[in-house]
Design a protein around this nucleic acid. Structure first.
Length: 766
DNA sequence: GAGTTTGAAACT
DNA sequence: CAGTTTCAAACTC
C-alpha cells in the first residue's frame, strides 16, 4: 500500500522533513542479518542515524541488533513518551499501554476489541509467562530474544524486536544505554527488499532517498528531507531500550519506554480482545512522516482502513518518543494501495508502511476522507498549525459524549480522542516548552485516556491530481498524496480549525453525529516569524487588504502564513475553502517559484534561538532597516550577512537602533502601564456595578452606596415623615413645614456623612 | 482616511 | 540572474 510517494516525502517541508538534527554516519550501510534476513546491501541501505539517548527511566531505545559497525547505521531512539496510539479510520486502534513497572517482564499483548481496537499491553507476568499470548501477540520475552512489534513489509516478512539475552553489546548504537547491561535491541526485519529502513527516533535519517520508489510501491516511508531511500534497502527497525533490568530477562516493554500518554479508545460495549496483529489488515495506507529536529518527534503512520475483504490490516504503533514526547501515529484508513501491516513474528508480514518521525518538530500529514475529523497539530518550529483530518467512520461512537478538552498547551499532552471515529493521538506541545516537559509515564490503568472531542470539520479533501505541489515546503492546505480512492492528505494550518469552526462546515460536521467539542483546543501556537509562541498566540491575526492578488499570492499575509482569509478586508478573495482548487494551484505556483516560499523566513540560527536570522535577508534601500518595511527589523532581529540592504542601521552597535529600541521599550512600558490602569479601572467599575453588598473601596473613602443603604434611606424617610407630622401637628404653614422637613433632611445627610467613615452601618435617628 | 513610501513578490 | 512591475503593508499627513 502506498502512503506517501517518495517524491512527496522528498518534498516535505523542512518543518516536517528537517533532518538537520540527524547525524549521518558515513559508514556504508551494512545490513544486520538479524535486522533483515533478506537484506540487500546497497547504496540505498539504511542510513546510520543518531538519536538522542535519554537518561530517562524506562527509556526504550531502538537500535539495531547488528554488529557495532552496523549499529552505527541504525537509528537509535529513545522513547520516553508514554503513549502509543494506533488509530484507524475503521475504528481499529492499536494501543500500547505503558507498563507500570519496567522491571517486570512484560508482554505486549495486542488486543483487538470489537471496535477493532488493538491494544498492546504490558503483561506483568513472570519471565516466560508469555504462554497466554494469543496468536500474533507481540511479546518481549524474558529471554527477550526476539519480539515482534511491528511487521513492516510484505507478507511473510516482519519486523522483529529482538532482545539480546544479556547486556548490551559493545559498540552498540548510540541510543543504547551504556550503563544498562540488558539492552534489548529490536530489529525490524522488513520483508521486502525494497523496504526502506524505518527509523523511529528523534533523529531521522535523511540520507535515504525515496525518489526511486513509486508511490504505489512505497512500503516504508522514511521522511528525510530531500533524501531518497532506496527501495532495495531492507527495513531495519532497531530499538535499543535501556531497561530497568532485573536479572537477565528483558523486562521491558515498549509500553515502559513510552512515557507519553496512552490513548485508549476501547469501546465500553465491547471489551478488547487479543488478536493477532497480522489479522485482517486493510490495504492502502498512507503515511505521513516527519523527521524532526526537535526532541519531540511525531511519527504518524497512516494505515489503510480496514477493508472487509482485505487480507491485510495495517497497524501502526504510535509512540511518544524521547523526552519531548515523540509519537508515532498510525492511522488506518481506507485505501486501495497495498496494506501495511504490523504483525507479530508468528504471522506472515504484509507490506508495511512505516513512518519515521524524528526531530524537534511535529510534522504530520493526515489522510483525509470524505468526512473528516479535524485536530490541530502543533508543529513546533513551524509557523503553520497543522490540522489533522481524520476519517469519520460510523463505528462505535461510545465515549464521545461529554467530550471535553483536556489538552493543555503546556503539558505536552497528546491530544487524545477517545472515539471510534478518531483514533489519533497528537501531542500538542508548545514549541518552547516541549523540551521542558517530560510526559508522565502512564500507569497500566490507562489513566491518561481521556475522552476528548476533537474538532469535527468536514474538510474538502478532494484530491488534486493535476497538481503536484512541491512538498518540500508544504503550505497549509496542500493536499498531500491525493490518494487513491477517497483518501488524500491535507495539511492545514490550525487556523483552519478555528476558522472552520465558525463556518458552515462546523455545523455540518456537528450535525453528522459527532459530538460537538465543548471547547477548542487551546494550544500554544508555533513561533511565528521567530516570535514566541505566546506572542503569536496573543496577537490577533491582522486582516489583509488585498485587492488584486485574490489573496493567492504571497503578497497576502494570510496566504503566506497559510491561513484562510477571515474577517479580512480583501476583495475578490480566493483564499478560502470555496476556492480550494484555485488556492491549491496558487500554492503550487508559489512553490514552483520558490520551494521555500512557505517556510518561515525567520529561522533559528545555528547557535540557538537567540540567533534568529532571516533566511534570505532583507533588501532594504531606504528604510535603513529600522522600519517595519524591513523584514528583519519587523521580526526584531538584526540584519545579517545574508542581507543585501543598503545603509543598514539594524545592527548590534547601531546607535539609531538602540535609540529606537529604547523608545520602543519606553513606549511598550507606557502601553503596559496604560493597559494596567485601564484594566484596573475597568475592574473597579465592574466591581462597582456587580457588587451586591456594600464594601469599602480601596481608595480610602466609602462609596455612597456603601452607606446609603436601604435601611438608611428608610430611616431618613421616616425622619422626614416624622418631621412633616410634627409640622402638621403644630399647624405650621406649608412653607414652614417644608423648611422643617428640609432641615431634617439636612441633618439626616449630616448624620449619614458622618457615619460614612465608619465601617458599621450608619444609624439614622431622628 | 487618503496619499505616499517602501520593499517583497511577481514578472519579464 | 538582473531589471522592472506589481502589490500590499507601513508610514505620513
Amino acid at each position: 500500500m502506498d502512503v506517501v510517494s517518495p517524491e512527496l516525502n522528498i518534498l516535505l517541508p523542512d518543518e516536517i522533513m528537517d533532518t538537520e538534527a540527524i547525524v549521518m554516519d558515513d559508514d556504508p550501510p551494512a545490513e544486520s542479518p538479524a535486522a533483515s534476513g533478506q537484506s540487500q546491501p546497497s547504496a540505498d541501505a539504511p542510513i546510520p542515524m543518531e538519536t538522542d539517548v535519554l537518561a530517562v527511566p524506562e527509556i526504550v531505545s531502538l537500535c539495531s541488533d547488528a554488529p557495532p559497525t552496523q549499529r552505527t547505521q541504525a537509528l537509535t531512539t529513545s522513547i520516553t513518551t508514554d503513549s502509543i496510539l494506533c488509530s484507524t479510520t475503521s475504528a481499529t486502534q492499536l494501543l500500547l499501554t505503558p507498563s507500570i513497572a519496567s522491571s517486570s517482564p512484560l508482554t505486549l499483548r495486542p488486543k483487538l476489541s470489537a471496535n477493532h481496537q488493538i491494544i498492546l499491553n504490558k503483561v506483568a507476568s513472570s519471565p516466560g509467562a508469555d504462554t497466554t499470548r494469543s496468536p500474533g501477540t507481540t511479546t518481549i520475552t524474558p529471554g527477550g530474544q526476539k519480539f515482534m512489534v511491528t511487521a513492516i513489509g510484505k507478507s511473510g516478512q516482519s519486523i522483529v524486536l529482538q532482545l539480546p539475552h544479556t547486556g548490551s553489546k559493545p559498540g552498540s548504537g548510540q541510543g543504547e544505554a551504556k550503563a544498562n547491561p540488558q539492552h534489548f535491541k529490536v530489529l525490524t526485519i522488513g520483508g521486502r527488499t525494497d523496504l526502506k529502513p524505518v527509523m523511529v527516533g528523534q533523529a531521522v535519517s535523511s540520507a535515504s532517498q525515496m525518489s526511486t520508489l513509486q508511490a504505489q510501491q512505497l512500503k516504508t516511508v522514511q521522511i528525510a528531507k530531500k533524501t531518497q531511500v532506496s527501495s532495495a534497502g531492507p527495513i531495519k527497525f532497531i530499538i535499543t531500550k535501556a531497561v530497568n533490568n532485573k536479572g537477565l530477562t528483558a523486562q521491558t516493554s515498549v509500553s515502559n519506554v513510552i512515557t507519553g500518554r496512552v490513548l485508549s479508545t476501547s469501546s465500553p460495549v465491547t471489551p478488547p480482545r487479543t488478536i493477532t496483529l497480522s489479522e485482517t489488515l486493510s490495504s492502502n495506507s498512507k503515511i505521513a512522516i516527519s523527521p524532526l529536529k526537535s526532541p519531540s518527534k511525531l511519527t504518524m503512520v497512516s494505515v489503510a482502513s480496514q477493508v472487509p475483504n482485505s487480507p491485510q490490516k495495517s497497524v501502526s504503533l504510535p509512540l511518544n518518543m524521547a523526552h519531548l514526547g515523540q509519537q508515532i501515529l498510525v492511522q488506518q484508513s481506507t485505501a486501495t494501495s497495498p496494506a501495511k501491516v504490523v504483525s507479530s513474528h508468528s504471522t506472515p508480514m504484509k507490506p508495511v508502511q512505516t513512518v519515521t518521525v524524528g526531530g524537534p518538530q511535529f510534522k504530520t500529514i493526515f489522510p483525509l476522507s470524505t468526512s473528516s475529523n479535524v485536530q490541530q497539530i502543533q508543529v513546533p518550529g513551524s509557523r503553520f498549525h497543522y490540522v489533522r483530518l481524520v476519517t469519520a467512520t460510523t463505528g462505535s461512537s461510545t465515549g464521545q459524549a461529554g467530550s471535553h478538552c483536556t489538552n493543555s498547551s503546556m503539558t505536552a499532552k497528546p491530544m487524545v480522542v477517545n472515539t471510534a471515529q478518531v483514533r489519533m493521538s497528537v501531542p500538542i506541545i508548545p514549541a518552547q516548552t516541549m523540551k521542558q516537559v517530560v510526559p508522565k509515564p502512564l500507569t497500566s490503568s490507562g489513566q491518561v485516556l481521556t475522552t476528548q472531542t476533537q474538532q469535527r470539520l468536514i474538510m474538502p479533501a478532494t484530491p488534486l491530481p493535476q497538481i503536484q505541489p512541491n512538498l518540500t515546503n508544504l503550505p497549509p492546505g496542500t493536499m498531500l498524496a491525493p490518494g487513491s480512492g477517497n483518501m488524500g492528505y491535507t495539511v492545514l494550518p490550525a487556523h483552519y480549525v478555528t476558522q472552520l469552526q465558525q463556518s458552515a462546515y462546523v455545523t455540518l460536521a456537528s450535525s453528522s453525529g459527532f459530538p460537538t467539542p465543548t471547547c477548542i483546543q487551546t494550544q500554544a501556537r508555533l513561533p511565528l516569524n521567530g516570535l514566541s509562541t505566546s506572542d503569536a498566540a496573543s496577537r490577533p491575526r491582522k486582516p489583509c487588504n488585498c485587492n488584486k492578488s485574490q489573496c493567492l499570492k504571497l503578497y497576502c499575509d494570510c496566504f503566506a502564513n497559510g491561513e484562510f482569509c477571515q474577517s479580512c478586508n480583501c476583495t475578490n478573495c480566493f483564499n478560502n475553502l470555496e476556492h480550494e482548487t484555485e488556492r491549491a494551484k496558487a500554492i503550487k505556483a508559489c512553490l514552483d517559484r520558490n520551494p521555500e516560499a512557505f517556510k518561515p523566513k525567520i529561522g533559528k540560527g545555528k547557535e540557538g534561538e537567540s540567533d534568529r536570522r532571516h533566511s534570505k535577508g532583507c533588501n532594504c534601500k531606504r528604510s535603513g532597516c529600522l522600519k517595519n518595511y524591513c523584514e528583519c527589523y519587523e521580526a526584531k532581529i538584526m540584519c545579517s550577512s545574508t542581507c543585501k540592504c543598503v545603509g543598514c542601521k539594524n545592527f548590534e552597535e547601531s546607535p539609531e537602533r538602540k535609540t529606537l529600541m529604547h523608545l520602543a521599550d519606553a513606549a511598550e512600558v507606557r502601553v503596559q502601564q496604560q493597559t494596567a490602569a485601564k484594566t484596573k479601572l475597568s475592574s473597579q467599575i465592574s466591581d462597582l456595578f456587580t457588587r451586591t453588598t456594600p464594601a469599602i473601596t480601596s481608595g480610602g473613602g466609602r462609596m455612597p452606596f456603601t452607606f446609603v443603604t436601604k435601611e438608611v434611606a428608610e430611616a431618613t424617610c421616616e425622619c422626614l415623615l416624622e418631621q412633616a407630622e410634627q409640622a402638621e401637628l403644630i399647624q405650621q404653614p406649608q412653607a414652614t413645614a417644608e423648611r422643617m422637613i428640609l432641615e431634617e433632611f439636612g441633618r439626616c445627610l449630616m448624620r449619614i456623612i458622618s457615619s460614612a467613615g465608619k465601617t458599621d452601618c450608619p444609624s439614622i435617628n431622628c
